[in-house]
Write a protein that binds this DNA or RNA. Structure first.
Lengths: 338, 338
DNA sequence: GTCTGGCACTCGGCCCGGGTGAGTGCCAGG
DNA sequence: CCTGGCACTCACCCGGGCCGAGTGCCAGAC
């Protein structure tokens, strides 16, 4: 077990390294932090910390830098979450309040997070797995051509074209529309399949084929919609990454463009509360030199999606976590209002 | 006026520099290209080209590199458009054929272009200025709350919530829906305002307020939708930019994230035919070290949007132009089919 | 007039070697 | 358990010299 002071030394190392981006030595530590002991003592502590794998030296006769494991300990035990200043809070609120629709909310959130943390921001669109159906609309574009429009409670709209085998009368259409809505409006996506299962049976023989087609398209759409989307911004901040650009930045950009990868990453994070994944803890190897801070957000108690930032492992964790959490809260509020 | 051979020298310089990314000298030129003259002669030609501002030396006793003006001449007079190989064509077609909806088409196009040119791809969504209305749907979510759904012929769907001052009966709603559609379906966005202008008058006094509200929301949506969107991909390719990363890459990433900037850039390009903007020809200063190759694409003869790539001024112009043009053609075909 | 070979010159890049200083590990003593 | 002292190790920072690619200019050949 590490003594209190050694933890304090680790904290100091992390803080200094994050600030200066340079390996930190024993002497510098005693000068910048009131640890109350001499450099020699610190050296012993550092040696112990290194034995335990919390810090490492880039090369002999250089200072120490934290390892992923060191950051882990720092985040878990040593760092708090730094609350934002009240001007910052006001700025967030003002900025988000101007949003006009869901796309705009997400877009503004991304820009806000990127600017606040000076890192890459990732915002997932509200997930539809827990969403409910607000309305289903059926339109006849032509006698044997329908359009299905699905509206969700999170404000998303999806449409699909349907080619029917046989013409479908206006009355049948109105009938189907009414019955469909009475069954599924307000229900969760996951419950829809069984709610509509027996619907074709209640129609006349001629119409059953079309009704079945419509239902299968609806179910398909629900499944597709459950696949999540996300928006990413602030990639220019990657240029402040470190000295050895090309090699570091490239895989990160590639990973960020693969939305599938990022969605998987978000999926691995806790649904509630904040998750910090440090360096190699990230499954994707392109992100081995980055940390990902994520948190769920939602209009009510339940999280409907996640947002977060991607930055170098050498990041200001308390500040980043504070910003991420604050933004998530405000976005939740905005969503609840609309 | 420059002699034939001097143009040939410029062409050789551009080609070599694009390939090696290093200043090219007179000796190397004679070795790699059959110019039929000695290095000394080339030197004279190079001096002349430099006087005219087509090439420059990074420092004394180094080779020459093309200037923006040199690339300009190269593109205008010396370079053709390199057609793609037929396997490449097939690959494009296969890849694009798998698309399921508009978002998917645009998404695939971006990935395709980025991969083909190994540069940053920019694809504008089909513009709605020339689009027509396919359908307008009105739904009553609550007695005094409507939802407007607009469907365009390019397959886009937009919805808006409308809070009415007074409840709006189901029959009035059906009436409005029918009349609205009979007037605007198949018409261009730009024509809609005058087509619906007198619509409120034909309704009963009580409903006129709501009808007006609905119409104003519709017009607003049309205007908003006319604002163009775009998708960008392949930013990881920026890492192959040059040696002096941070300074070069950063403003480019920033510009790319500002979609407004990119849209303006596309807007400045010719509507038909290919446009190449080289280095400082780009209005945005962040793109001073990049060239932008764009071309319009569309389902018919008319271009409905533009796509292109952003890369270093030191790019393979013939190849890039070939890829951009080919992709634009295939996307046009796909759009025409759907 | 144009091209060519020759020549002197320039200057960035590379390698080498010494000096410097930050940082370390170890040890004996308080 | 802490501390001061000491020897040691390297990364980093010059400065200098060498090398070679590339240039401009010029006199002579075609």
């Amino acid at each position: 077990m590490l003594s209190e002071r050694r933890l304090e030394v680790l904290r100091a190392i992390v803080q200094d390294y994050v600030g200066t981006e340079e390996p930190v030595g024993s002497k510098a530590l005693t000068e910048r932090h009131r640890l109350g002991v001499s450099p020699a003592t610190i050296r012993n502590d550092m040696a112990a910390l290194e034995d335990e794998g919390f810090i490492a030296q880039p090369h002999t006769s250089a200072g120490r830098i934290p390892t992923d494991k060191g950051y882990r300990l720092f985040v878990d035990k040593l760092a708090g979450v730094k609350p934002l200043s009240s001007p910052e809070r006001r700025a967030i609120q003002n900025f988000l309040d101007g949003a006009v629709d869901l796309d705009d909310v997400v877009g503004r959130t991304v820009r806000l997070l990127a600017q606040l943390t000076r890192q890459v921001a990732v915002v997932q669109y509200p997930s539809l797995t827990r969403s409910t159906v607000r309305h289903v609309e059926l339109l006849a574009l032509a006698p044997a051509r329908l359009m299905l429009v699905l509206i969700t409670d999170t404000g998303r709209v999806e449409q699909r074209l349907i080619d029917c085998q046989a013409p479908f009368g206006e009355t049948s259409l109105a009938d189907l529309r009414a019955r469909l809505n009475s069954r599924v409006v307000g229900r969760r996506f996951a419950d829809v399949p069984q709610l509509v299962q027996d619907l074709p049976e209640s129609f006349e023989q001629d119409d059953r084929g079309t009704v079945s087609t419509v239902l299968s398209v609806l179910l398909e759409t629900l499944v597709e919609e459950t696949e999540e989307r996300l928006m990413i911004g602030g990639t220019a901040n990657l240029t402040r990454f470190g000295h050895d650009f090309p090699l570091t930045i490239r895989p990160v950009l590639e990973a960020l463009e693969e939305h599938v990868v990022m969605l998987k990453l978000l999926g691995e994070a806790k649904d509630s509360g904040m998750t910090v994944r440090i360096g190699h803890e990230n499954a994707h190897e392109g992100l081995a030199s980055t940390s990902v801070v994520t948190v769920g957000y939602g209009s009510g108690d339940e999280a409907v999606a996640k947002l977060g930032v991607v930055g170098p492992t050498r990041m200001d964790y308390p500040g980043t976590m504070g910003a991420v959490r604050a933004v998530a809260r405000y976005v939740g509020q905005i969503l609840a209002e609309s």
